[in-house]
């Protein structure tokens, strides 16, 4: 499978599925136009609740990560620039996550520059095929 789900994490399982697919796409494990297993297939394969998987797929479809073609199945959507409202919402979420990072950084005494260089380093590692950071 492209990702693992750990039911013991505080993150809800459906969110782990959403994140897992997004990560797999960014890493290139799954490419645009690839067929994704159906809800039933994925649920059975990973012994996950099918309602949970369906919820994740719905969210991925809403975010235009997945595309459902009637009668053919679920596919990784072509990348489309998100709509303004969607973009704003997701931007706000990124800002919130950045604030978190900054606060946590503050407690381990990372300066602004330290944080920026750490961030760049992380991205480079990721792009050169490194594992989870």
């Amino acid at each position: 499978m492209w990702f693992r789900v750990n039911p013991r994490l505080p993150t809800p399982i459906y969110q782990q599925v959403v994140d897992g697919f997004k990560e797999a796409i960014v890493k290139g494990f799954v490419k645009q136009g690839d067929r994704i297993p159906s809800v039933r297939e994925l649920a059975t394969l990973m012994t996950l609740n099918h309602n949970t998987v369906a919820k994740a797929y719905q969210q991925l479809e809403r975010e235009h990560v997945f595309e459902i073609i009637q009668g053919r199945g679920t596919f990784v959507a072509e990348f489309k620039p998100p709509s303004d409202s969607d973009r704003d919402r997701r931007l706000a979420k990124i800002v919130e996550m950045m604030q978190q990072i900054y606060i946590e950084g503050h407690y381990v005494q990372l300066s602004e520059d330290d944080l920026m260089s750490l961030f760049r380093e992380t991205i480079r590692k990721w792009e050169t095929g490194g594992k989870d950071v």
Partner: peptide, 14 residues
């Protein structure tokens, strides 16, 4: 056990 659980999930989804 895994096989049995998979049958159950498959049925529930189908």
């Amino acid at each position: 056990k895994r096989q049995v659980l998979q049958f159950i999930i498959d049925m529930a989804a189908k």
